[in-house]
């Protein structure tokens, strides 16, 4: 378990961490999610000991490590840009931590083989990092971090430098790896999709503060404030309600819409179809309010739903939410 208590860090006039306290349960995969400058990386680096806190403490597995250098914190750290030892082969990179611990050669060799197998680089031992693709380099970096059996694994935007396809694969692979290895893992990301996809728990940071901590579902369904709500996914503002774009229902018939709205106790929003975008399996319908002219929102439909409605640009439709989020005015009451 990792606990950070009342952490503060300031760079000149910029408050990177503002009295942050966070508990990370053992064995979980926690994502620190936030926009750039939110302090997520600073928090991760403070846990690693790569950044000294101005005040506050860091405890890893019951040991106060606030003033312990990174070398003795029992961590594994993975950097966005791999931080590979370029002059060493893949094998020597992975073996580095064990070599400097002066473990017996046979043991190192066995452990490195195991890890290269786990990360799928078994045939690449004698290559140099520059001969690997970005995804392979990052897997090597992960194997290198895992080689020393860290108590916690810290990943700083590990997939940030990779292209979309590789990022997706690696993300899924990391999740599987975590399910096998069970090492307490903290992942920093600015990509809400990545956080929702891979993490057990998410801590949302903004402007050096933690906005909300919870499971992906909790955060998505019950955001604690407008920031978390809009950061975790798109939001469509209707007449009197706020909803996720995929929680919208579109009707062509005014009576049916009104009846349904009355049954569920929501408002009906009249809108005009501005644009239809097909994104794989989903169809994104861009709409504009007829009442407050010009204001736009969008709905996500499945292809089947879209086909049934036979929407065309310029169509007049009635939109109602099937599930709503709190509106901005309702948040203060909910705030923790």
């Amino acid at each position: 378990m990792i606990s950070v208590t009342n952490a503060n860090k300031r760079y000149g006039t910029f408050q990177a961490l503002d009295d942050v306290s966070l508990e990370i349960p053992a064995g979980t995969l926690t994502a620190l999610l936030g926009p750039s400058g939110s302090g997520k990386s600073t928090l991760l680096r403070a846990i690693a000991g790569l950044e000294d806190l101005d005040s506050g403490s860091v405890v890893i597995a019951g040991q106060d490590v606030t003033h312990v250098p990174p070398q003795r914190r029992g961590i594994g750290f993975v950097f966005q840009h791999y931080a590979a030892f370029k002059h060493m082969t893949v094998r020597d990179n992975v073996a580095f931590g064990l070599t400097i611990r002066k473990r017996p050669k046979a043991e190192i060799s066995k452990r490195v083989d195991e890890l290269l197998e786990v990360v799928g680089l078994a045939g690449f031992q004698h290559r140099y990092p520059a001969q690997l693709s970005g995804g392979q380099r990052q897997r090597m970096a992960l194997a290198r971090a895992l080689a020393v059996d860290p108590q916690v694994l810290l990943l700083d935007e590990p997939f940030g430098a990779l292209d979309a396809k590789v990022r997706d694969d690696l993300r899924r692979w990391l999740r599987r790896l975590h399910d096998e290895v069970h090492v307490t893992t903290v992942l920093v990301t600015h990509d809400q999709e990545e956080a929702l996809d891979v993490a057990d728990r998410i801590a949302v940071l903004n402007a050096g503060r933690i906005e909300q901590v919870g499971s992906p579902d909790e955060l998505y369904e019950q955001p604690a404030n407008p920031f978390v709500m809009s950061f975790l996914g798109s939001v469509s503002r209707l007449n009197g309600e706020v909803a996720r774009p995929h929680d919208l229902r579109i009707e062509r018939d005014q009576q049916r819409a009104a009846a349904e709205a009355q049954r569920t106790g929501v408002h009906v929003t009249e809108a005009v179809v501005e644009r239809l975008v097909r994104l794989g399996f989903e169809v994104r319908v861009e709409l504009s309010h007829t009442t407050h002219a010009g204001e736009q929102f969008f709905a996500q439909l499945t292809r089947a739903q879209a086909a049934e409605l036979q929407l065309a640009i310029g169509d007049h439709v009635y939109v109602l939410p099937t599930r709503t989020l709190p509106t901005e005015e309702e948040f203060p009451a909910l705030a923790v």
């Binding site: 790569l50 990174p70 580095f96």
Partner: peptide, 12 residues
């Protein structure tokens, strides 16, 4: 980063 990576792996 490379030096920090080495530090995190325990290198003096």
């Amino acid at each position: 980063d490379v030096e920090q990576a080495a530090a995190s792996l325990g290198a003096s």
